[in-house]
Design a protein around this nucleic acid. Structure first.
Lengths: 244, 244, 244, 244
DNA sequence: TATGAATGAGTCTTCATTCAT
DNA sequence: AATGAATGAAGACTCATTCAT
């Protein structure tokens, strides 16, 4: 998991060379401080000295825990990704139907922008850009995070909700890329967003495209059912919304 | 062509910023090198010294052509935008119908990735961030470039192709953001792309969504009601989930 | 001792900016080197790299002690002013009479040139020029230092030694400006000076002017009237002169 | 006169390798532009490129006239000093008496500050500081400029106005140094000055010191005569004053 | 001779990283 | 293990000067 070879020892619980309590605590403090600063300022604009200062430790000490500034970043991101992915694992399994699943994925992702805008900025602008992204293990985390789209689509095909041959990559891009673009202003503090409303609308846009059923000359049946579906989904999830 | 004021020496009587052949050539070489490096590494991670090295001049010379690293970036971007916008101006007016227009916009944008990979990234992730973006004239260019999506949508509503109330911002994000995400691997030299095929497929995806007309026609009421019930059940159980 | 905020790492519990022995020594060495070079070349013409070279450290190290070249300058100046002002505080109060006081001020100032040659130049010609001079605290120091001239004059007026209406600013300029000019060769290592002799003579010159009491006593009315006539003639002919 | 060896040819009229009319004209234009910029911004802050730009030539051309930026400065200063010195030569000879002479020297010098503050700044802060000042010929000019003080004193001794043994160097310093200090605010645009008033007061201060005749218990005679002298001198010279 | 493009040494400043203690 | 002083390479940018044309 570590990219480099020097003293620093991973803080993953069950690592072999068990470190002292003190050391483990320090590592955590440093990690927390790093998260703070990275999220505030981004990777490049963060000075290790500032992380050290927030913990109350000298620069050199940081390097005795994490061999590299970038290692520290990776650790921070892992720590942020992991609960996100677990969230998905837990909830996704209980969802039924493409619409519900898609909406959850979208809704959860929008919340990332709203609740942890720094994370989005970090991943999007500083990590994904780096050459060693693929080899750093972060790519793998990201794949795990975004794979639920593929799952949802495959399941939908299996269930007959979608015809076979759907271009998973294209849909995934449309989902994450589109949201990224849409949320950009949020990262820069322009707007407030209604997470549920955005999720609802984006889900429908993805499912029905620009030309909704009605426009295509379908009967009233269709339109009424669609609205019903949307309504129920929206109301249900809105009960849990807690925007930061 | 000059953005800045310092190096230009207007000693040609009639004040035209006429550059010598040689100078003009060099300016072009520097611009080309700058584009290369900016696209590879992004703006901040690009060192002027590297641009200079690629051209085979000393660092200082670059500044005799472009007063500022950022000026250089702006020039690079302008160089991209201009032909793009001209393209649109000419072609768009002759197109009829939402599908044709959308497809053109998409097709043209995909070509940007294929022909000048990485420029979108630059604009999206590095320039728009800068505080002086709005005042730099680049914002204006960007608006001119992306407004055709809005135009196409508004026209479609006028023509009765789309119901009123379409969320232009969301569609624009889906278009540009989705394509950006989709083309990402291309920027890193992974795939070759069939521009027309991608344009066709993305256009359809945007127009019809995941559930194309055919598929939707097949969906019987029974199946949809079942899904609806499942959804309601899912929402109920989700209430116990605790998001991080 | 630190002017700036960045490098200082206050991890000593009770927040005293306690430097290690070693660090303190280095800081002193750098300060000494800086004084040397600043005095030799002036502020702008001094390169931080040269200061570093004289101490035998790399350029960057200097900035770990003093965040800014200008901070370094301020520190250098403060180091001069402080003992000077303390000297004054102690001695001045015990002096009686304008002559004694003036002589002390002059004598002390001449010693500055002899003991720390060039510092006055720095203050007069490089620091006072800077826009942030007023806000840097140096102005305050300078005022404290030179105010004793004003004090001496005011006291002399109070005691009836001088008529009211003496132009303090002019006298202060004559004192400090004249000495600066007089000491200039000393700064460049030309002469040695007898501090006491210079102080005596300059004090007398300031008190009695060019025409000491004795000389003035000898001037008969006849001679002065002749000069007066000559002057009037001169003024008349001067009317034709055309200044450049 | 030239410090360096390259092509540039002095523009002193009777120089041997007679240059073409065109060339001579250009040299003059460059010199004029240089004067402008130097006086505005000082030596170090002036870029040769700016001088070139004002004349409408390229940087390189400047160096074909003046081998060095510093040479250019020296030429500029010479051009400024020369009329000043000639002024003195012409007027001084016609003056009689120490007071009149001293006052003229002071008055003329104060006018330099008021009318050409840039010159004062240039000489004081940039030239006199440089190591090659002594060897540049400028020192010689300065000596020629300031020698009239010595002359005035020596003549006064000869005429019996002053006792022998007056310390010329000290008086000269008091005059020029004091005025420099006094005029400092003027250089930075703070005050306006009444040239005549300053000249009058400074002359008296130099002649009589802090303790004027009255204070020393002299008769009314003295005071009345002194005032008369001052008045006549002031009125006469005020007629010619033309503050910038 | 004049040009003007190119140079290259220099400016201050930042910071991840190393290493002797 | 921790410290914290020192490093050294890099950053953007400036400008007097040179030299081929």
């Amino acid at each position: 998991m570590k990219t480099s070879t020097r003293p620093a020892r991973a803080k993953i619980p069950d690592d072999v060379p068990q470190m002292s309590q003190r050391r483990q605590k320090r590592a955590g403090e440093i990690l927390a401080a790093a998260r703070e600063v990275f999220l505030e300022k981004g990777f490049e604009r963060t000075a290790v000295s500032e992380i050290a200062a927030r913990v109350g430790v000298v620069e050199g000490s940081v390097f005795s825990y994490y061999a590299t500034k970038r290692d520290l970043l990776h650790e921070v991101l892992r720590e942020l990704y992991e609960p996100l992915i677990e969230d998905f694992g837990g909830v996704y399994a209980r969802l039924r139907g493409l619409r519900a699943r898609l909406r959850f994925i979208i809704w959860r992702h929008v919340r990332v922008y709203v609740e942890t805008p720094g994370l989005a900025r970090l991943v999007l602008h500083e990590v994904r850009t780096g050459a060693e992204y693929a080899s750093s293990g972060l790519h793998a985390l990201h794949v795990r995070y975004t794979q639920y789209v593929r799952l949802a689509l495959e399941d939908a095909v299996k269930d007959g909700e979608l015809p076979a041959g759907v271009d998973v990559e294209m849909v995934r891009s449309m989902l994450y890329g589109g949201l990224e673009h849409l949320m950009w202003p949020v990262l820069h503090g322009k707007h407030r967003v209604d997470v549920d409303a955005v999720a609802d609308r984006y889900t429908e846009l993805m499912l029905q495209g620009l030309q909704p059923a009605r426009a295509r000359g379908r009967g009233d049946h269709e339109a009424r059912l669609a609205r019903l579906e949307a309504l129920v989904g929206a109301a249900a999830s809105r009960r849990r919304a807690r925007p930061a």
